[in-house]
Amino acid sequence: MNKFLKSIGVFLVIIFSISSVSAATLTERLKDGHKLRLGFGTAVPWAYAGDNGEALGFVNMIALTVLEEMGITEHETKVFEWSGLIPGINANRSDMVTGGMYILKSRCENMNFSDPIGVFGDAMLVPKGNPKGINNYADVIRTGAKLVTGAGFNTVEAAKKYGVPDSQMMLVEGEVGILAAMKAGRADVAVQTFFGAKEHEAKTGGKFEVTDPKLMPKETLNVVGIGFRKTDVEFRDNFNKALAKVMANPATMLKRAGEYGYDKAQLPPPSMSTEWACSTK
Rank of each mutant, 00 (worst) to 15 (best):
Lys6Ala: 05
Val10Lys: 01
Leu12Tyr: 03
Ile15Ala: 15
Ala23Arg: 12
Thr27Pro: 01
Arg29Asn: 06
Arg29Cys: 01
Asp32Ser: 14
Asp32Ile: 00
His34Lys: 10
Lys35Asn: 13
Leu36Trp: 06
Gly39Val: 11
Tyr48Ser: 11
Met61Lys: 15
Ala63Met: 08
Glu69Arg: 12
Glu74Ile: 02
Glu74Asn: 11
Glu81Trp: 06
Pro87Gln: 10
Ile89Gln: 01
Met101Asp: 04
Met111Ile: 15
Met111Gln: 04
Phe113Glu: 01
Gly129Thr: 10
Pro131Ala: 10
Ile134Pro: 04
Ile134Met: 10
Arg142Gln: 15
Leu147Met: 14
Leu147Ile: 11
Thr149Met: 15
Gly150Ile: 08
Ala159Ser: 15
Pro165Gln: 08
Asp166Leu: 06
Met169Asp: 08
Met169Lys: 06
Leu171Pro: 08
Leu171Phe: 12
Met182Tyr: 07
Gln192Leu: 14
Gly206Glu: 04
Val210Leu: 07
Thr211Gly: 08
Asp212Pro: 09
Asp212Trp: 12
Lys214Asn: 12
Met216Asp: 12
Pro217Arg: 10
Thr220Trp: 13
Val233Leu: 10
Val233Thr: 15
Lys245Gly: 04
Met247His: 11
Ala251His: 06
Glu259Ile: 00
Gly261His: 01
Pro270Phe: 10
Ala277Met: 15
Ala277Pro: 00
Cys278Val: 05
Thr280Glu: 09
Lys281Ile: 07
